[in-house]
Design a binder for these strands. Structure first.
Length: 587
RNA sequence: GGUCCUGUGGAGCAGUUGGAGUGCUCGCCGCCCUGUCAAGGCGGAGGUCGCGGGUUCAAGUCCCGUCAGGACCGCCA
């Protein structure tokens, strides 16, 4: 080792020791006759003091990489720095060696200064020298280690699966890789190891996990990158409860050790239908109330066209209350209309309750009859001074989702979110299917998800109501993991394919290998996958998963550091077979 | 594909109703300085106001287009 000690580890008890340190010049304070340098390495910072060989010390600049030999001294009385863990001591330097110099820095390596995203990513290696970004990656490493510990204690096997494969039916666009040896044929990068982990169950591995890189060619968000990581888990001979127990153990340990948060009691379960009814979301943020109220029955018979139309179509009318919302200006209330239109709604009807009298006012109030108006506040649980927002649609979910989004926005604007709180829940009993635009059905989770016991024999009779053994775990309104019990019976799988309109030929073509494997005694199995970037983001208190990824991409899929993606040469293009005609027509 | 925000020395930002190539903090370079810890003092360098077009007597400022970064919707578990 080049050094004998870690800079950040030195304490008063080390006084008198001669140490060799290696690290970077974090800051220097040049007084002419004495020079102080904050020397930083992976463990922290210590003050080193130069009193001789001043020319060399004077020439030091920020982020020079240096080695120093010196003696640890207690700082002179009154000069201790209680802000620093090493603040009781300093290292009096007897020998300085510059290991490498640093050019003037394109971004400040300083915990207190945050540069823009693109320049930070372009010089990510400098960005990572800062406390925050470094801490985020260290936390991620610990999170993975904690998960591995939990899983190994339970006899799980860590198994790698291919990243050059054929596409799995997750619904997203695939990233494709041309195949030189078979021009015209392409690999897909996996959207998840879904089918492979099921094959591992058929293979008798019984308990599998993998911290798996996944790829989806869709647009970005703050919590979405084109390549991302899942903690992927699958178990044989288990029920939904077993998987939930395991998932809970992982989450419990993570939050206890990395967030200092003890999750009290079992994580509550809420059914998908309940979550939609009460929160207008399949990933409800339970840090605050502001629940939705259904008014379909209450408002039956209204002459207000918007509501009457939805009710007549067998739809839904509902409301959500904004505490104190009556104090909003006309402009703010109009702003909600723009907000609603921005997410594709026609608008957001509202009634405000006068702060003094509780009298309902606003454009919608004029359209409601006396009976509906007088009982409204009680029906939705509103007080004088509140605002009531309404949504109505023939499609229940559409209206609920608008109210759910409004609920989140209300909490934000009215400052109802306790940022220090952690609120978890399992959303269970997810629907199996949802309607497609062309009138067919598509799997909500994926086509291998098992109907629950109640619907196993009858899901075809009411696909819109059929429920699955599918579950998501939600933290503060973020879906951090999800999974399901898989279908292991060929007959059930065939019926699901039939309902989804997937022909035998098509099924055979897309995942015949899985169906074939399922001929040979597949065990009942179930699993879960955690969005590892999101989990780490939450634990790190970051507001983007980019903060917990070593080298993330920008929104356009661009890596400012390497400038990827790049065009390829004509030679590469020819060799890759990008332009080759496929041998057989794709289905 | 759509809506919105941002773009001004190396970094972060300010720049009024359009009015002289504008400024602040940090950094950088030089000098001074023996107890600082965001050290301090003096001096200095550094700019195509993202790019292109338009309106105007006059554009960092207004309009159109475009590029880049970000937030959201669509999309995506």
């Amino acid at each position: 080792m080049i050094r004998t000690h870690d800079a950040g580890s030195l304490r008063a008890t080390d006084a008198g020791a001669t140490v060799t340190l290696a690290g970077w010049v974090a800051r220097r304070r040049d007084h002419g006759g004495v020079i102080f340098v904050d020397l930083r390495d992976g463990s922290g910072v210590v003050q080193v003091v130069f009193r001789e060989d001043m020319d060399a010390a004077h020439a030091l600049r920020n982020e020079y990489c240096v080695k120093v030999v010196g003696e640890v001294n207690a700082r002179p009385a009154g000069n201790e720095n209680p802000e620093l863990p090493t603040g009781a001591i300093e290292v009096i330097v007897s020998d300085l060696e510059v290991l490498s110099e640093a050019a003037p820095l394109p971004i400040p390596v300083d915990d207190d200064v945050n540069a823009g995203d693109d320049i930070r990513l372009r010089y990510r290696y400098l960005d990572l020298r800062r406390g925050g970004p470094a801490k985020a990656l260290r936390l991620r490493s610990k999170a993975s280690q904690i998960a591995r510990t939990v899983l190994h204690e339970r006899d799980f096997l860590e198994i790698e699966t291919p990243t050059l494969t054929r596409s799995t039916p997750e619904g997203a666009r695939d990233f494709l890789v041309p195949v030189r040896l078979q021009p015209g044929s392409w690999y897909a990068l996996p959207q998840s190891p879904q089918l492979f982990k099921q094959l591992l169950m058929v293979g008798g591995m019984e308990r599998y996990y993998q911290i798996a890189r996944c790829y989806r060619d869709e647009d970005f968000r703050a919590d979405r990158q084109p390549e991302f990581t899942q903690l992927d888990i699958e178990m044989s001979f288990v029920t939904q409860e077993d998987v939930i127990d395991l998932g809970e153990a992982i989450v419990r340990n993570l939050w206890k050790e990395l967030a200092g948060h003890e999750i009290a009691g079992p994580i509550p379960h809420i059914t998908y239908l309940d979550a939609m009814a009460r929160y207008g979301s399949d990933k409800p943020d339970l840090r605050y109330g502001v629940e939705l109220t259904e008014l379909t029955d209450y408002l039956r018979g209204t002459e207000f066209r918007v509501f009457a139309g939805a009710i007549a179509d067998g739809g839904y009318v509902g409301a959500v209350v904004m505490p104190g919302g009556a104090a909003q200006t006309r402009k703010e209330l109009d702003g909600w209309q723009d907000w609603a239109k921005a997410r594709g709604a026609r608008g957001l009807a509202y009634v405000v309750l006068d702060a003094e009298t509780g009298e309902p006012r606003g454009p919608v109030a004029k359209n409601l009859n006396e009976a509906h108006l007088s009982g409204l506040a009680d029906a939705v649980g509103a007080k004088p001074g509140d605002a009531i927002f309404f949504a109505a649609a023939a499609e229940r979910r559409e209206a609920q989702e608008l109210l759910g989004a409004a609920r989140v926005e209300i909490a934000r604007r009215a400052n109802l979110i306790d940022e220090s709180a952690w609120a978890f829940c399992w959303v269970v009993d997810a629907p199996m299917f949802e309607k497609t635009d062309d009138g067919g059905w598509t799997a909500v989770h994926h086509p291998f998800t098992s109907p629950n016991a109640e619907w196993l024999d009858t899901f075809e009779s009411a696909p819109d109501r059929a429920l699955a053994y599918a579950y998501d775990i939600v933290c503060n309104g973020n879906e951090i993991g999800g999974g399901s019990v898989r279908i292991h019976r060929g007959d059930v799988q065939s019926r699901v394919f039939d309902l989804l309109g997937i022909s035998t030929e098509e099924a055979q073509d897309k995942f015949g290998f899985l169906l074939e494997a399922f001929k040979y005694g597949p065990p009942p199995h179930a699993g879960i996958a955690f969005g590892w970037d999101r989990v780490c983001m939450l634990l790190a208190g970051a507001d983007s998963i980019r903060e917990v990824i070593a080298f993330p991409k920008t929104r356009g899929g661009f890596d400012p550091l390497t400038s990827a993606p790049t065009p390829i040469t004509a030679q590469q293009r020819k060799e890759a077979g990008v332009d080759a005609k496929p041998v057989a027509a794709a289905s």
